[in-house]
Design a protein around this nucleic acid. Structure first.
Length: 506
RNA sequence: GAGGCUGUAGCUCAGUCGGUAGAGCAGCGGACUUUUAAUCCGUCGGUCCAGGGUUCGAGCCCCUGCAGCCUCACCA
């Protein structure tokens, strides 16, 4: 609620600098209202994006020192005041919308006494609409020479430092709206994210995939090895968990005959937080009947390529401290071959593997040879993969949802895509043998601690498989990590608008 | 969950050996019809993250807590 108008009153003792700064803005808000304008604005039609205006203004360019040219085409823009410079009877504004920034000049004589009074009530952060002529100032800056001023919304809070913006990462995340306004490249990064998601969706749709939505509330969470979040439905008095993966329901849809399906959605994992992990994150999973994991390799390359184009990513990105060349086709290397190459021991020899693992401090006592192998792989091979690389043909024992290679039951038809040491995608030739699937579920559950065995066997999924699921390829891509790569972001929190933060009293 | 770093005005940051809390920006008043983080003159502005302790005296030293960042672990 605006207080009664008291222009130039500045001896308020309401406590605190913030309150005094806000009072100055509320005083102006009252003056704006007194001038007959709605300080919260009204519908404002016909504004042109500033980037479009800038493109139109470029051919009119005049070098610095020339007399100002203020007779270009009439334009209308709307945006937020980022900078304000007054020079007597002239005011220069830097106005920003989501497409860009442009300078606006308001001259006392040019706009008339009423608009000039309104211009005197403007603060950094206010939203205004401008009508004027596009041109160039004497100092060689593209400028809209205002003829009319519409007030579209008051900012009552002091914006961040006009030069440095917000730099405190905590405040950038807690007040993302400010980060979007003032952060270097922040708005563009999130607009790139939006284009990436659209490109992923388009790539799949073009290939005949149907977008579907599975349940996020489930009786038990399956499809991945992670602890779920628990919740409760009141009316049904029913314990529920949030999904940790999309897999099991999408495969039911393959049984149902939808043949090519994908879901682009949020999954929730009750695990630790890190620069690469957020408790909720966006996952793509896609399944194609009658395909296999090589089908999914082609699809993965197509998706990454389309997303890179959409994001405007350069061919070589600087990511996680390395130069990453995104050229296709991506390298394909077999799991065992990579292990042999990096570790230098025979991957088929469990004794040699255990020795190599033990030499790197990995616990080997009483553990399955494939699990030891997997730990050794993670400790040595992952970091060696810089350019996008498909690691293919995994040890079967660590792949409970994957079809085995024909005639080689110890090898699973699976690949993971690594970039700069980080896992970006994971895909299988999907296991569709219900009896083997049930057996693998049982052995997997037997190995879990009691806390996690709440992730029970999904009997309905097994029943679906017994009805007959076509052989298929399936793919999962961590969208947040893809966005990180394509926007050269080193923390997942930089590509999630509102990452989970601990509450803080204020 | 463990270790390291950080927390000072609305924002960005200084703060020496433990001795009255500083600057720039923003704000307010004034000058300026071509400014570019405008400039110039004047002026207002503090729960030094919170709570304890040591000390004649703590922004600074000690302890506890909170939050963020980094590394590690679980995970993708």
């Amino acid at each position: 609620m605006p207080p009664p108008s008291s222009p130039s009153g500045h001896d308020s003792d309401s406590g605190g600098v913030a309150a005094a700064l806000e009072k100055a803005r509320r005083d102006k808000l009252a003056r704006i209202a007194a001038l007959g304008h709605d300080p919260w604005g009204r519908r404002f039609d016909g504004a042109t994006p500033i980037a479009t205006v800038r493109a139109a203004g470029e051919p009119l360019r005049r070098p610095p020192g020339e007399p100002p040219a203020d007779d270009g085409p009439a334009v209308r823009v709307a945006g937020r005041i980022m900078l304000q410079r007054s020079a007597g009877s002239l005011v220069f504004l830097d106005l920003a919308d989501r497409s860009g920034r442009i300078q606006v000049m308001i001259g006392k004589k040019q706009v008339g006494p009423e608009a000039w009074q309104l211009a005197d009530c403007l603060d950094l952060g206010d939203l205004v609409g401008i009508d004027g002529r596009l041109g160039w100032s004497k100092t060689g800056e593209m400028t809209i020479f205002a003829s009319a001023l519409a007030f579209l919304g008051k900012s009552l809070e002091t914006p961040p430092d006009k030069y440095h913006g917000l730099v405190d990462p905590e405040q950038k995340q807690r007040q993302r709206y400010l980060d979007l306004i003032h952060g270097e490249g922040v708005r563009e990064r999130f607009m790139a994210r939006s284009r990436i998601v659209a490109a992923v969706r388009q790539t799949l749709t073009e290939r005949g995939y149907l977008e579907v939505e599975g349940p996020t509330l489930q009786e038990s969470a399956g499809g991945a090895a992670a602890r779920p979040f628990s919740t409760h439905h009141n009316a049904l008095d029913m314990a529920l968990v949030l999904r940790i993966a999309l897999e099991l329901h999408l495969k039911r849809l393959l049984v149902g005959g939808l043949e090519r399906v994908f879901e682009l959605g949020r999954v929730y994992r009750n695990e630790g937080v890190s620069p690469r992990h957020n408790p909720e994150f966006t996952m793509l999973e896609a399944y194609e009947a009658y395909g296999d994991y090589t089908t999914m390799m082609d699809l993965t390359e197509a998706i990454v390529a389309a997303a890179a184009v959409a994001a405007g990513t350069p061919p070589v990105v600087r990511w996680m401290g390395r130069d990453v060349d995104l050229a296709r086709p991506f390298r394909r290397v077999r799991y065992d071959d990579l292990l042999a190459e990096v570790v230098g021991c025979d991957p088929a020899d469990p004794g040699a593997l255990a020795a190599a693992a033990a030499a790197r401090g990995i616990d080997t006592t009483g553990r399955h040879p494939d699990v030891i192998k997997s730990d050794l792989f993670e400790a040595t091979c992952e970091q060696s993969l810089v350019a996008p690389t498909f690691v293919i043909d995994y040890p079967a024992a660590i792949c409970p949802l994957t079809k085995r290679k024909a005639g080689r039951p110890e090898i699973a038809e699976r690949f993971e895509l690594y970039v700069a040491g980080m896992e970006l995608a994971n895909a299988y030739t999907e296991l569709n043998d219900p009896d083997l699937q049930e057996e693998l579920f049982r052995t997997q559950l037997a190995g879990l601690p009691a806390e996690e065995s709440m992730a029970r066997m999904d009997h309905d999924f097994l029943r679906a498989l017994r009805h007959g699921m076509p052989p298929a390829g399936g793919l999962g891509i961590g969208i947040d990590r893809l966005v990180m790569l394509l926007t050269e972001s080193s923390s997942i929190r930089d590509v999630i608008l509102f990452p989970l933060l601990r509450p803080v009293g204020d």
